[in-house]
Design a protein around this nucleic acid. Sequence first.
RNA 1: GCGGGUUUCGCCAAGUGGUUAAGGCUCCGGAUUGUGGUUCCGGCAUGCAUGGGUUCGAAUCCCAUAUCCCGCCCCA
Length: 439
Amino acid sequence: MSEIIKVQKGTKDILPQDIAVWHKMEAAALEIFTRAGYKEIRTPIFEATELFQRGVGDTTDIVNKEMYTFEKSERSLTLRPENTAGVVRSYIENGMHKLSAPVKLWYKGPMFRYERPQAGRQRQFHQVGIEMFGIKEPSADAEVILLALNYLKQLGLPNLSVELNTLGCAKCRKEFRALLIETLRPHYEKLCEDCKARFEKNPLRLLDCKNESCKAIFALPEIQQVIQSDFTCPDCSLHFEQLKSYLDNLNVNYKINKLLVRGLDYYNRTVFEIKSENLGSQNAVCGGGRYDTLVEQLGGEPTPAIGWAMGMERLAALLPEINNDKLDIYVVSDNKLETLKLVERLRALNYNVDFDMAGKKFVKQLEKAAKTAHFAIILGEDEINGEYLTLKNLKTAEQTQFPLTNLSDFESRTYKFISTNSSEWIQSKLSMLASGFGM
RNA sequence: GCGGGUUUCGCCAAGUGGUUAAGGCUCCGGAUUGUGGUUCCGGCAUGCAUGGGUUCGAAUCCCAUAUCCCGCCCCA
C-alpha cells in the first residue's frame, strides 16, 4: 500500500454524520433571506488578485499575508478571502445599479485565508452573508442588523451580544485621525511594533490592539477623552443616532464599543459584530458594516452599501449536533427481484428505503433493520406466495400485514398502524401522509 | 510568522526499557436455514505519527521531521 494523502492543514472534510447541521444553516439562510427580499448570488471562488488589493485594502492583514495567490497565463489570481469584493465586482459588471434600489443579495460558500489554524479558524472556511446596495438611510442599517439576528434566532441562537460603533465618513474620520495621531504622538516610543507601523497609515486600527502596554496607554484619561469624544460630523452623527433609535424601539440589545474597528479597509459609518462567549478566543460569529465608497472605488457608480458575513464553522460550533435520521423502512427478504420491485414502489411513495444487497441471512438483515430503520418490511416466501407484505414496527415489535397488490392501501392504512408510536418520525410522516391525502 | 501541548486498532484507552502490545465500544462471523437491537463464543495493531540514534533488548530514553490541538497576531 502506498502512502496515503491527507487533508491539507486548515481544511476539513464535512462528513455525512456532520452534514445535517450544514443543511440546517443553509435552509435557514434561504428561508430567512428570501423572506426579506434577498436573492442568492454565487460568484467564482477565484478572482483577479487586484480585486482584493483594491477592494479589501492592501494595508490589511488579509491582503498582506493571508491570500492564496497563484499565477496562470500571466494573470495573478487569488482564492477569495471574503466575498464582499466579489459581490461588488459582480454588481458593477452586471450593471445592477440599473435595477431598482435596494439590490439585496445573499451568498454562502468557502473562503480561503492562509493563517495558522486554531479553534474557530481554518484556512478553508465557510461564510454566509448578505449585501444591500443603493440605500444610504439608517433604516437599511437597522434592517441588515435585524436580519442577522433573525437568522440567528431561526437557528436557535437568539441571545448573542451585538456590539456597535460608527467610524464616521471619510471627512470626519480624517479630522479624528489627525487628532488621534497628535494625542498619541508623545507615547509613540512605548507602543508595540505593530502599532508603530500602523501609526501614520491607519491609526484607528491601534484602538483594536491587544497588547497590554498599548491598552494601558489607550486607557490614559487624555486619550480616553479623545476616543470617547464624538468626532463624527453632523450627518454621520444623525445617521448613527437614527440607527440607535430604531434598534432601541425594536428592543434590540446592543452595546456601543468605541474600540470596535473592523480590519477591512472598506468600512465607514456603521460597523458591528455579534459575539458568543462559547467560542474560545475567536468569538466573533458575525461581522459587518457599511461600505459606501467601495462600489465607486472598484469602478462603479457611487453606491451606498452595507452587509455582513457569518462564519459557518463558528455557527456550527454553537449549534447542537443533529443526529442523522434513520431510514423509514428496511426491507428484509431473500428474494432480491421482488425486493427491488417493492423498493422502487416505496421510494416512489417518498419513503426512505434500503435493503440488503450482500446476501445476508434473515436474522442479520433484521438486525441491520433494527439498527438503521424505524420499520422493517418482511418479504419472505410466505408473503410473496400470498401477495402480501409484513410491516414491523421495530420499536414496539408490532407487526401487521398489507396486500402487495395495492400500495395505496398500504399508504392509507400505514398511518393508523404507526400512530401507536409517537416518535418524531411518526409525526412528520403523519403530516406528510395527511397532506398527501388531503386530510 | 512566533509560543505551548498532543500523537498506541475505525473510536476511546492501558502500558513509563524485558516474553506473542491490556481492556471497552463499533464492526465482522457463529450459537440461531423466517423475526432483531439481550446473552454466549470467536475474529479484528508482526505493530505504537515518520526517520534516525542509544541499548543485549525500545511504544517506553535521545535527536530531527510531520501531525493535530490550543494561544498570539488578525479575522467570520
